[in-house]
Design a protein around this nucleic acid. Structure first.
Lengths: 215, 215
DNA sequence: GAACTGCCAACTGTCGACAGTTGACTACGC
DNA sequence: GCGTAGTCAACTGTCGACAGTTGGCAGTTC
């Protein structure tokens, strides 16, 4: 659609900054100095400002007038509010997926589940990458571009919050089971059950993040 | 919270441009010329560009590299996708409102419903303003800031699409009934019914917009 | 007459510099 | 010693100008 969006300096700056924010290179709570970062990226303040505003609109930065852009710190209420939004979106996506999924979608979903379980039984730590891939595959099956867009933004914010946490993976087994059950519900076209499982799944993940947050 | 956000030229430009886009002063499909509009607002291109990018992030403008910003035209698929998102968000809000509403919220909801019905029975055309006020009051009762944020953005986009349509108000009676029933469900704390009524309500509004679109 | 090529004007993308504001540091008064 | 007013450096907000790209127009060729 818009293939060469990365040609503009602002677009490149968005990518670099997003990566730095999400991976914690720019730690939570710290400020983004325009002149410093601009010089560091070898660009002017103009494109950098655009990039900063763009990331702010995605919720990855918070703007304070005359003070600059900050990486939002993880906050208990924020986690709860964010997961309420995520639940609303992904439950709807699960319902839609149950009624719209094609055979290709099912193959993809089974693949991701199998790969996750393979890694898990092999003792590997069920990379977060595969969890994202699963939710992405489900979104694809839902075929609702606007919902997908928003889910992607919310997931990014969750990644940001998660980056501030030391990742403890005790709930991985339960998540794998949730994913499997979700795929079954979608396969059978049971929208209500798909939504219910998703809600339970996200509720568990949210609770786990909240306990991690307190530590 | 952030009272003097209107002091920055970019912030002012956002307000003015938003108004012009939503009211159709800048018609759908037309382009926004940076130098022209900047001169027209008496500001430089810098703040105006920020304003344009901001509105684009809200979905009120679409950016095309090296071509500029355009007011998105109403499209059938877009309406459907947007209402899928809106349904997901507002059904969740209705559920939350049913379990979190306070007496003050109920008073406010009843007020808005009464005012709407008063205007309607008086032969007045049930201003869109009151419809927005109702959905806003419901959102307030839901107490989920992130969901409220997104609903507000989606409603804005709906207003934009609606501005391109000649407003035919044949579904107003049904909408009033929907609102009343929604308030009853919220009052009784019946989350499932609140969600169901909201879904039916939005489905009807969406269908009405689609038929208006074809004309 | 149609298609192709080269040129041109208009506009967006980018840059460096100036002005206004913020928060902190210092010095003074009590 | 503590609170307060004044000062200052750093940073954001804003501006005008330059460079690169796009789409259209005129001229040319077949």
């Amino acid at each position: 659609m818009t293939p060469p969006l990365h040609l503009s300096l602002a677009g490149q700056a968005v990518d670099v900054l997003r990566e730095q924010v999400l991976t914690g290179v720019i730690p939570a709570g710290s400020r983004v100095n325009e002149v410093e970062v601009a010089h560091q990226l070898g660009i002017s303040r103009g494109p950098l400002r655009e990039a900063i505003r763009h990331l702010a609109s995605e919720g990855l930065l918070t703007l304070v007038p005359h003070r600059g852009a900050f990486v939002p710190a993880a906050d208990e209420d924020e986690v709860r509010a964010l997961f309420e939004l995520r639940t609303a979106l992904e439950c709807a996506a699960a319902e839609l997926a149950a009624s719209r999924r094609t055979d290709v979608d099912l193959v993809r979903l089974h693949e991701v589940c199998a790969e996750s379980r393979r890694d898990y039984t092999a003792g590997q730590p069920f990379p977060y990458r595969l969890d994202l891939a699963f939710h992405r595959a489900l979104l694809e099956a839902a075929r609702s571009p606007r919902i997908a867009e928003q889910v992607w933004l919310v997931q990014q914010r969750v990644v940001l919050l998660r980056s501030a946490l030391e990742d403890d993976p005790p709930h991985q087994h339960a998540s794998l089971d949730d994913h499997d059950e979700l795929v079954r519900a979608v396969e059978e076209g049971d929208a209500a059950r798909a939504s219910g499982v998703m809600r339970r799944h996200l509720s568990r993940v949210c609770a786990q993040m909240l306990t991690s947050l307190k530590a």
